[in-house]
Design a protein around this nucleic acid. Structure first.
Lengths: 248, 248
DNA sequence: CGCAGAATTGATACATCTCAAGCTGGGTGG
DNA sequence: CCACCCAGCTTGAGATGTATCAATTCTGCG
């Protein structure tokens, strides 16, 4: 089983699609060489659980392609997604043994993993890694706080619009599309996963998506393929400051 | 005005009440000496805004005593608290100019401030600071994610119980009380601030507090002085895993 | 073709919000 | 010393948004 997951195919860090955004972004050539020695790639299938809450983790790593979610679950089954991991995002926490969350692949995924102990040693030795990780963690903290506003104060319609605009924005920057008012992308989440992200039920998600479609804010082709004819309109529906800025 | 706020009274870092928890916790003696050169104390009154959202910040620092809040506000006035800063917590973000949130003192406060530029230079030079800051930021991220579960999935009653248990826990650890089942503390927040924290209205907060009191989960003396006769009962009401552990 | 998972839609229940009216306690000025 | 005031809080009644329960309807796939 593990043998199937693990691929030792060596990619060159120089060609890596997430080279400029991941935890290694600031590394010099010699630092990259040392990283290459402790790295290995691992594939996960859609639906596969990467880490169970509470389990011991012996690696950390970066999402190379695909999407994963962090979720928390209460005893009675209520679940809340607390993080969405897109390519270049970091998984795991140096200095702590277990993850407090379930990490689940929602699409097929490739991860660039580092054995935890050697990585922690490298962090001490090469400040570039520690510095970049701090920067990324501060960004994640900002994103989490942004999301607290969504969860605590926005209506169901605003929540959906917020999620769509975040996915649209990240998708556009990743694919290096120019900032446009019309955007097209695929939803990487089921209605249920969206509900878990937004603190709603899947029925409410479905109703609000239908409503946004009915009102012309979005267009749907199938269940997943979304067209946003006017991005600033979507931002408006999300209740965000539309300080003019597109795709920052 | 600024003259009144700023106190140049030099405290010795060795005697500092937050020495072992703050961003300087890992510093050696010589590092502390360099920190002392760029630090200054500043007092804030209850209700005073420390930083306005979007404003330029020329300092970072640690809360020495008192309590501050981070809040986000939408155009129509809806507000969500996204952070509660207690003694030893860090304020500001090295590497970024402005704060995306309002930072407000909810009680009289003392802060140990560092001028931002010299502090950023020290971060590069002394890994102990950067490392401790990463550790603290990861803890804050965990706390933020915990809070996302509260905001997204818990009922009003569970939300109140969650907030009370967090305050009780932090208060007990700060005052180094032994782990007991009976806890006594003062609420540092108004009903409105609690509502902003929990994504509720202040009326709902008031009703749920009354209900918890009626059900014997808490006892009130005045509006702010709280007694929790059975802490595990409170944790139960919060919907948390009561994995036996008191005050970890 | 027909099944199973995913999504939509409808009817009703219920938790929380909203609006509105008092209450309480600590401070102030006459 | 009392009367008043006001911010903070409590309580009530009704409105509303979202959850819940229950059918269908899609859609991709063996």
């Amino acid at each position: 089983m593990l043998n199937e997951d693990t691929k030792t195919v060596a990619h060159d860090c120089g060609d890596c699609p997430i080279r400029h955004r991941a935890v290694c972004a600031r590394c010099e050539t010699d630092e990259l060489e040392r990283l290459e020695e402790i790295k290995y790639y691992r594939n996960f299938e859609a639906g596969q659980t990467i880490i169970w809450s509470g389990d011991r983790m012996d690696f950390v790593g970066s999402v190379v392609s695909g999407i994963a979610t962090l979720t928390q679950t209460m005893e009675d089954g209520r679940t809340q997604m607390v993080g969405l991991l897109l390519p270049s995002d970091f998984v795991g926490r140096p200095g702590r043994d277990g993850s407090p969350y379930d990490v689940v692949a929602t699409t097929d995924m490739v991860m660039c993993c580092f054995r935890k102990r050697p990585f922690e040693e490298m962090m001490v030795a090469t400040p570039h890694i520690a510095h970049r990780l701090l920067e990324m963690t501060l960004d994640e903290l900002d994103a989490a706080r942004e999301w607290m506003l969504v969860l605590g104060r926005k209506t169901a319609r605003e929540k959906i619009a917020s999620l769509l605009s975040i996915i649209a924005r990240r998708d556009a920057t990743l694919n290096l599309q120019p900032a446009q008012n019309r955007l097209v992308f695929d939803l990487p989440l089921t209605r249920e996963a969206m509900a878990d992200y937004l603190g709603l039920t899947l029925e409410t998600v479905s109703r609000q998506i239908s409503a946004l479609k009915r009102d012309g804010v979005i267009e749907l082709e199938g269940k997943r393929h979304v067209t946003v004819p006017d991005f600033s309109r979507l931002l408006d529906e999300a209740g965000d400051d539309t300080d003019g800025g597109l795709l920052v």
